[in-house]
Design a protein around this nucleic acid. Structure first.
Length: 435
RNA sequence: UCCGCAGUAGCUCAAUCGGUAGAGCAUUCGGCUGUUAACCGAAGGGUUGUAGGUUCGAGUCCCUCCGGCGGGCCCA
């Protein structure tokens, strides 16, 4: 190739007629006596390489017979059109060198159980489905950065090691910081983002988040990646617009650039197209519990919404649903009460369609110093630990809002994958931290 | 921690009423010049998770422990 880098399968459609040399691994092989079809995998794509006995030297033919699944090899050949192939090209092989024969590859082209695949996660990553998911994930990450940078946000890296108890230590991972001081792994960057938005106006953080909860469901990981914007002077309505615009843009980007991966995942993209183009449904918590009552879910004011309720709420909608103004009693202490309805908080949960559940949770933050102090006392949180957080309200306070979105939940929804564990390279789950 | 499900060949599963543990994939060997999870033939591969019990006889019934899966709680 003219750019001086090694050629890759993904760029081959423009090289028809040229002779190229590629390196990769054998994904699959089909033999038919004097002709062999080798499927080469190089991370960028898949390429059928055709070896015909009469057309190659004896040693090339013999080498091609040694290839087992995942054997690494180098192949040279002429790129030619092959309409039936993915990518529209195949390789007429003229030379082949085995780099390392793979013995006893454990993952066959047939089905496998979850337990087995999870214990082989480092190898499972090589399968076509996992590659497609990880490409979508990476696209989403890149789209997140682009979304905020193009709007003048500054990325703030919030700390991963945090001092004592912010919202209670029961769901925090504890680690020894010094001989006589403990530290905890961060479960949210939000508290650190709030002072930063007073410095920079519009900020966001994006990093790993740790939750030591004993959740054992398809929607939970103990280590996951969360993106959190925080905006000075933004109030609840601006936050709702931001959340909607954000999800729309990420969805559009994935549909636009990861079409092939979604196809491989057999994702029905018509549902995502609605998200990209149509306005999202918005409803208050009070409206939501009425809606649920009509569907046979007796939820009374003050009850939180479980997974079944969330799924029922989004039924009939192709786009995410924004549920706002939950009772303050079931939400975090820092959420601003609604002046028009003081029992509820100015908050939002964004529920994805198709049963994917909560993508985003966010709120307008309490900006009044004394009200926040009262809430901290009411929840019996250690005031000393929150002095710096209260300082945001002490020195030139201002309304501000933000939300958090789980990268894996968003990716799972885009890919139509039922379980979060496939949406992060090395999932950390309850009772499973290998490999 | 609670509720539910299942531990049989390297992997995915089957085994009727309690009566000689089988198949596909993978591996090895053989066949096939356009295959698409290719196909056809053959071979090797088993302490049925673990400890105990019932029985003439247990993969199957009872029970101990272990690890797994799904859900609840919690949240993104």
């Amino acid at each position: 190739m003219s750019n001086g880098t090694a050629p890759s399968i993904s760029g081959l459609s423009s090289s028809v007629g040229e002779t190229v040399t590629l390196k990769g691994w054998l994904y699959n092989r089909r033999d038919s006596g004097k002709i062999r079809f080798l499927v080469l995998r190089d991370g960028s794509g898949y390429l059928q390489c055709v070896v015909v006995k009469k057309e190659v030297p004896e040693d090339v033919w013999e080498s091609s017979g040694l290839l087992t699944q995942e054997t690494s090899f180098e192949v040279t050949g002429v790129v030619r059109e092959a309409p039936r192939q993915e990518g529209g090209v195949e390789l007429g092989v003229t030379g082949l060198t085995v780099l390392s024969v793979c013995h006893d590859w454990p993952i066959t082209p047939k089905e496998h159980g979850v337990d087995f695949l999870m214990s082989q996660r480092h190898l499972w990553l090589r399968s076509a489905r996992q590659v497609a998911i990880l490409k979508v994930r990476s696209e989403v990450e890149s789209a997140i950065h682009d979304f905020y940078h193009s709007r003048g946000y500054t990325k703030i890296d919030s700390p991963i090691l945090t001092p004592a108890a912010c919202e209670g230590t029961s769901n925090l991972f504890e680690t020894q910081y010094t001989e006589d001081e403990k530290a905890y792994l961060s479960q949210s960057g939000q508290l650190y983002l709030e002072p930063a938005c007073a410095a920079l106006g519009k900020v966001y953080c994006f990093g790993p988040t740790f939750r030591a909860e004993k959740s054992k469901t398809r929607r939970h990981l103990r280590e996951f990646w969360m993106v959190e914007p925080e905006v000075a002077f933004m109030e609840i309505d601006g936050l709702l617009d931001l959340a909607e615009e954000f999800i729309k843009e990420l969805t559009t980007r994935v549909l636009d650039r990861r079409k092939d991966d979604l196809k491989r995942l057999e994702r029905d993209t018509t549902k995502l197209e609605a998200t990209a183009t149509r306005p999202f449904t918005r409803m208050t918590y009070r409206e939501a519990i009425e809606n649920l009552a009509g569907k046979g879910f007796p939820v009374k004011f003050g009850d939180d919404l479980g997974g079944d309720e969330e799924t029922a709420l989004t039924e009939g909608f192709d786009t995410p649903v924004l549920v706002t103004r939950y009772p303050s009693s079931i939400k975090a202490f820092y959420m601003q009460p609604d002046p028009a309805d003081p029992e509820v908080a100015l908050c939002v949960d964004v529920l994805a369609p198709e049963g994917y559940g909560e993508l985003i949770g966010g709120s307008q933050r309490i900006h009044d110093h004394d009200l926040l102090l009262a809430r901290i006392r009411q929840q019996e949180l250690p005031i000393e630990a929150f002095q710096w957080y209260l300082d945001v309200r002490k020195y030139g306070t201002f309304p501000h809002s933000g939300f958090g979105m789980g990268l894996e939940r968003f990716t799972a929804w885009m890919c139509g994958v039922p379980h979060l564990r496939e949406c992060i390279p090395y999932p950390r789950m309850l009772y499973r931290i290998y490999p």
